[in-house]
Amino acid sequence: MKIAVLSGKGGTGKTLVSVNLAAVAAPSTYIDCDVEEPNGHLFFKPEIVREELITVKIPQVDEERCVGCRECVRFCNYNALAYVNQKLIIFDDVCHSCGGCVLVCPEAALSERDKAIGKIEIGVSGDVSVYTGILNTGEATGIPIIHRLLEEGSDDGNKPVFIDCPPGSACIVMESIKDADYCVLVAEPTLFGAHNLNMVYELVKLFDKPFGVVLNKCLNEENPVDQFCSDKGIEILGRIPFDHELASLNSSAEIVAHKQDEYRELFSSLLETIVKKMGESAGSKRDGVLSDLKKMSGDTVSGERGEALHGSHSTCSDGSVKGVKPKEVRSEAAVDS
């Protein structure tokens, strides 16, 4: 059972929710896919048992062979190559590792080497296995790290897995939720929150994932997100109050569910609700249950990947997908005000 936690914007409480859900679900697995700003480890303070460098392929030039034809410079859509003073310069940090320059070089002067772009850390914190992806600052993409994290973290027995996604709705988020069985969308009950929620709502609909919303920093009053959810028929799974004590504990990187019974209760009942909803949506999708059972009984990781990629592809090739326009998103949020 894999639960992805996402939000349209950082700072809405995505990490608060995923960390505390993993804590109350223990034994469990927590995977931090927010590789640009991984914060989950600050809460779990795990003991690191293994590290793995993540590498990508970067071109290197054999200057003896290079004749200065500039085919590679012309081909590179990322402008990662320049040729001046009879010398080819390669800019690793702009390179997307597509391998095109090596293919087009008529002199076979280019080859590839491994370059580390970051690492994954695997650790334990009590009964929680903590997987953290860390992208080195300056690298073009964290997607290879997320691939590896999900491969490693999902292969951890029958424990529930909580995936802390990067904020937003970019391709890196798509990668993080590809294999998820359920998505939890965290939103603040504000006008901004409604607008940002709409973006991830479009995303999970696109991927045809069952999902529900958790409201964070709730005041007891009418708000645009409740309105948005009721208009769209979206389930609200739980509400976390606008609470000074909770905010203060969380800002000190404490797991609030470990600190106070009241908060433990809050996240336990949230988890229960999520599990119940997952059961309901799995019931309506028998295929989903079957593939879940297959995964749980230890199907190979590569098998899962292939399936997942295929699944996402069939959604993406749907002609309607490209028609999701931000301006439509915008006007809906405005109506809610």
Binding site: F75, N77, H96, C98, G99, V104, C171, H313, C316
Partner: peptide
């Protein structure tokens, strides 16, 4: 997959 494509042009090549 338009969301997976990073625009490098290798496939076209």
């Amino acid at each position: 997959d338009p969301y997976g494509c990073e625009g490098c042009g290798v496939c076209a090549y």
